[in-house]
């Protein structure tokens, strides 16, 4: 979370004629540093998920545990609808970004607000699923990894939502323009990552 915030904002304002500041660094790559930082951060996030998927692999494949555990059922359909909700939030986010690039502030605000609301809906449905799914992580390893993976993803959704919320607040306070939208784009990449990750989680946990 801290890192993401840093990437979105960490920047030295070197105004012209600013003499006590550092000399401008040479830009030795066409890649934007903040963008690159976010991409590297996402790589390490993918590895966190990788470790949880390793646990899933060992429990389900190596141990050969029955999936889902005997006497339990996973709400595939509801989670499918939830998947659609989360994926549509990626579309609205893209809409918001295109809008601000075209200096369409109303479209931008509507898009970013809608994205945040869709994300919150996803999280709400997920928590609701925990309440009604009928088993606990303490029951068996299948439950453990079910809650582990969806919980890890849920935590990422929550972090993404905090970022989106900040962007929304700033959007309604009149920040960003067609020229300055890195603060939308970079948290946006994180949100897209969270969405793509969900597809993998949904496929392995619910469908396979």
């Amino acid at each position: 979370m801290e890192a993401a915030g840093a990437l979105a904002h960490d920047h030295d304002h070197d105004d012209a004629g600013h003499h006590h500041g550092p000399p401008p660094a040479n830009r030795s790559s066409r890649v934007d540093p903040q963008m690159l930082g976010m991409l590297l951060f996402i790589i390490s996030e993918v590895m966190v998920f990788g470790a949880f998927f390793t646990a899933y692999f060992f429990i389900r494949v190596v141990q050969g545990a029955e999936w889902p555990a005997a006497g339990t059922e996973l709400p595939v359909a509801i989670a499918g609808v939830n998947t659609a909700i989360l994926l549509s939030s990626s579309l609205t986010l893209h809409w918001a970004l295109v809008s601000i690039k075209n200096e369409d502030r109303n479209g931008f605000r509507a898009g970013i607000l809608l994205t945040t609301l869709l994300g919150a809906t996803f999280l709400f449905v997920q928590i609701n699923e925990y309440v009604h799914v009928g088993f606990a992580p303490q029951d068996h390893a299948q439950g453990t990894i079910f809650y582990g993976l969806t919980g890890l993803h849920g935590a990422h959704v929550a972090i993404g939502l905090l970022l989106l919320l900040s962007v929304t607040i700033r959007a309604f306070r009149g920040h960003y323009s067609a020229k300055e939208h890195a603060g939308v784009e970079i948290p946006g990449i994180y949100w897209h990552f969270v969405d793509v990750m969900w597809i993998v989680v949904y496929a392995t946990i619910y469908i396979l």
Partner: peptide, 19 residues
């Protein structure tokens, strides 16, 4: 009280070492 490494509940002890 999760069961990642509880052999009695389908957990996998060696998974810890791999990760």
């Amino acid at each position: 009280g999760f069961n990642f490494f509880q052999a009695g509940a389908n957990g996998d002890v060696l998974m810890y070492q791999h990760v």
